[in-house]
Design a protein around this nucleic acid. Structure first.
Lengths: 223, 223
DNA sequence: CGATCAAAGATCGGATCCAATAATATCAGG
DNA sequence: CCTGATATTATTGGATCCGATCTTTGATCG
């Protein structure tokens, strides 16, 4: 669609965003311009512009003459983002459900099957998003969908995949299965209720894992 | 709060954002780097970085080697943004209403009175936002509030004040009065319902004014 | 021995310069 | 006179250089 001509700054932005969202650059990492410039084999200018751009996206915070760090979400913020998602996604589903066609269901089923079968974790986030987005598609709310997607990625960043998924895949699969069935049955109230719980449960799981991780790190720090 | 040390880029960002949101730079305006640089008395570098930053915020769109233009929202997009606002703000009110204290009411009343009395238009947007935000404050949802504020500004931009307000001030005032009273009565259901209608009516008014304006421009073009 | 201040080094922000790309004008051919 | 190729110009993107600011180290003094 938007086929911007590739520019160095743009590529740097994409690379850094990818690394931040994937967790390769954990939160609070220092981003030295010179280091990144050398790493990517470019001058510092596109790095600086990329950092500014990412700052506007909320992924890094910059302090002038001090440096840029990968920004971090507090647990409260994380929870709130999930709650916003729940509020908006239930709304999307409410609108799209009456309009879901067999084609949408087939696509959702295919994505669901892929998520069940694929044992590797790397694609899970994308598949999960695609699954949800498929169910919301008929609502025809591009702005809302883009916003929710941004929140989705933003909430997931910083958490290496094993942390996100450990002990929750089967649960997620079961919930997705139920969600699909409820949609097919046309029960809007129960489907949206289930979706809300699904999202909020995901938040709770992620937060408990995160707290455990921080406790662990705290212990390591004390040792 | 965030007291970054002032940097040229930062100031340029703030200036351009202000000009875009206020309508001084109408949508689809071409933003020539050299022109802006001369205007602000700086080199092109901070201009470029500012433009990139604003692009990430969604206020301008850049095409490499072609230039930057002030981005525009379609009418559909505008309507959708208002609907998102309605969905989120009713949620905020729902949570905050039980927690509203006399202090909040007094602040809201003061802002309301200011909006009624102040015949000048310049402050209206800010006062209006502050009024709404005051009612949502007890919900203690900083992320949501920041997001809604962004949507609020984004939806209002491009519309010179006279267009936004003509023939709607009295209506807005009446609706605000009712909203305040419903809050005081503690009727959550009716208050949120009223708020939703208030926001959606605002959208409808703005869109009709916008369509009239475009029709008018179309006629002028044909003449 | 610890604290404070100064100087050196590191890093960032901004200006200038150069290269790459798109828009525009010019000219040849039909 | 119109169309298409080519050259010129305007504008952007990127690299290098310079000045400003922050950090760190080390020396001096209490």
């Amino acid at each position: 669609m938007t086929l911007h001509r590739v520019t160095t700054t743009g590529r740097v932005v994409d690379l850094l965003r990818e690394q931040i969202l994937s967790g390769a650059l954990p939160e609070a990492s220092l981003l030295r311009q010179e280091k990144l410039a050398a790493e990517f084999g470019v001058s510092r200018v596109p790095i600086r512009e990329a950092l500014h751009q990412l700052e506007a996206e909320g992924l890094v915070t910059m302090q002038s003459h001090k440096g840029a760090v990968v920004s971090s979400l507090s647990i409260d913020d994380l929870e709130e983002v999930y709650e916003i998602r729940a509020r908006l996604e239930t709304w999307l589903l409410e609108q799209s459900m009456p309009l879901l066609s067999e084609q949408h269901y087939q696509k959702a089923e295919a994505l669901f099957a892929e998520m069940v079968e694929d044992r590797r974790d790397e694609n899970w986030s994308n598949l999960n998003w695609d699954f949800h987005a498929t169910l919301y598609a008929p609502a025809n709310r591009p702005q809302t969908l883009a916003l929710v997607r941004k929140l989705y990625l933003n909430a997931y960043r910083h958490f290496p995949l094993p942390i996100r998924l450990t002990g929750s895949r089967e649960k997620m699969n079961r919930e997705h299965r139920i969600l699909l069935d409820l949609c097919r049955q046309g029960d809007v109230a129960r489907a949206t209720e289930h979706l809300e719980q699904h999202i909020l449960m995901g938040a709770r799981h992620l937060i408990s894992r995160l707290k455990a991780l921080r406790r662990q790190e705290g212990d390591a720090g004390r040792a």
